[in-house]
Simulated assay, not measured.
Amino acid sequence: MSESTAFRNDLPRSMTAVVAYAPGDYRLETVEVPRAGPDDIILEVEACGICASDIKTFQGAPSFWGDGKGQARYVKPPMIPGHEFIGRAVEIGENVARKGQYRLGDRLISEQIVPCEQCRYCGRGEYWMCERHDVYGFQSNVNGGMAKYMRFPKESRTHKVPHDLAMERAVLIEPYACSVHAVNRGLIQLDDVVVLAGAGPLGLGMVGAARLKNPSRLIVLDTKAERLELAKRFGADITMNPLHEDVVQAVKDMTDGYGCDVYIEATGHPSAVTQGLNMIRKLGRFVEFSVFGQEVTADWSIISDRKQLDLYGAHLGPHCYPFTTAAIADGRLPTEGVVTTVLPLTEFKTGFDMMKQGDGSIKIVLVPE
């Protein structure tokens, strides 16, 4: 076995990591460095973004921690959070090395989901909907990237990242892959009027992806001026703030009273769902992307009897990583200005607070030391 595809004997025994025990109980601790089994890759983490779902988990959202009303617990604490990671391979298991696909020093990313490869969905190639899956950063057996090192197990969906791609751009591959998938779900046509609600990191990725579809009009909604300005730079034709104007009426006025053809919800706020149902035209396509902190209620008769809408969910970024990586690298998906703050891992609480408040910050990235 060559040096470039071997185990490492110089990895440290311990590392600093963020460990989640319960809602609000996240601690900076010294833990054991993971080592590679025959089918594993050990990654030295270069950077890890903080996702909105990390904040919702920290706050105790029932969709993650369960609610005693039928919503099962999803997380398996104590776990190391973080699924928006990139890094370099520092140890490779013998079976992985034998295949020759990955070598020491490769810059890598793995998709958020770790599928079982055995259920009905995996058998049909629909791995992102795996029935018995794990997700990096939410279960202790697949600890995430808020640490110096992490393990990619055999079932990981791993992709290479160009070495010359700046960290601030490379760390956006995972969220942007989700953005691309959501936009693809909308089946955007050339003459469509598309409304995108939410210009956070994922929403901004959707702006770039939707612009590549070249609809007749791309409208972006958000409540923060700096995010709307970035959306405009990324390709939005029109930006509007729902706090300052009646956006439903404005869109109807632009479309002879019909409403938009495609509405993509990426805010995670319940009001954006009702807003979209009221704004979209009959026979329109509604794409729901967000993970909500609580149940959302809506008048379902709008979906059926009144408008006969096509309703599409969007989950993760399946089959989108190669395109997303290439499109970020060559500039087709704009990224400048999305990463607003880079903090050492030891300041993760500051990063969480900044993401929660959302003022003056879009994407916060943690860098292990």
Results as ranks from 00 to 15, higher is better:
T5I: 12
T5V: 11
A6P: 00
F7P: 01
R8S: 15
R8F: 00
L11A: 11
R13C: 00
M15R: 09
A22H: 13
R27L: 04
E29S: 09
T30W: 01
P34N: 09
R35N: 08
I50G: 05
C51P: 09
F58G: 01
D67V: 08
D67E: 09
G70P: 08
Q71E: 14
Y74G: 09
M79K: 03
H83T: 07
F85C: 07
R88P: 06
E91T: 06
V96L: 10
V96C: 11
Q101C: 01
L104G: 01
R107I: 04
C119E: 05
C119Q: 04
G123Q: 15
W128E: 06
D134G: 00
V135F: 14
Y136E: 03
Y136T: 02
Q139T: 15
S140M: 08
Y149R: 03
M150S: 06
M150N: 05
R151V: 04
R157N: 13
K160S: 12
H163S: 11
D164N: 15
R169K: 15
I173L: 13
C178F: 01
C178H: 07
V180N: 03
H181W: 07
N184A: 05
Q189C: 05
G198P: 07
G200V: 06
G200M: 10
L204W: 02
G205S: 09
M206S: 05
V207N: 01
G208A: 13
L212K: 13
N214F: 01
I219T: 07
V220N: 11
T223P: 02
L230P: 05
K232F: 00
R233H: 08
R233E: 15
M240Y: 02
E245G: 04
Q249K: 15
Y263F: 15
I264N: 07
E265R: 06
E265L: 11
A272F: 02
N278G: 12
M279I: 09
R281K: 15
R281D: 02
K282Q: 10
L283M: 12
L283N: 12
F286E: 01
E288D: 11
F289T: 05
F292M: 11
I303P: 01
I303S: 05
S304R: 11
D310G: 08
L311W: 13
Y312N: 10
A314W: 02
H315G: 00
H315V: 14
L316Y: 12
P318D: 03
Y321W: 11
Y321I: 08
P322W: 12
P322T: 12
P322Q: 10
I328N: 04
G331V: 14
V342P: 00
P344N: 10
T346Q: 13
T350I: 13
G351I: 08
G351L: 10
K356G: 03
Q357P: 00
G360H: 07
G360L: 04
I362C: 03
K363R: 15
V367A: 03
V367K: 15
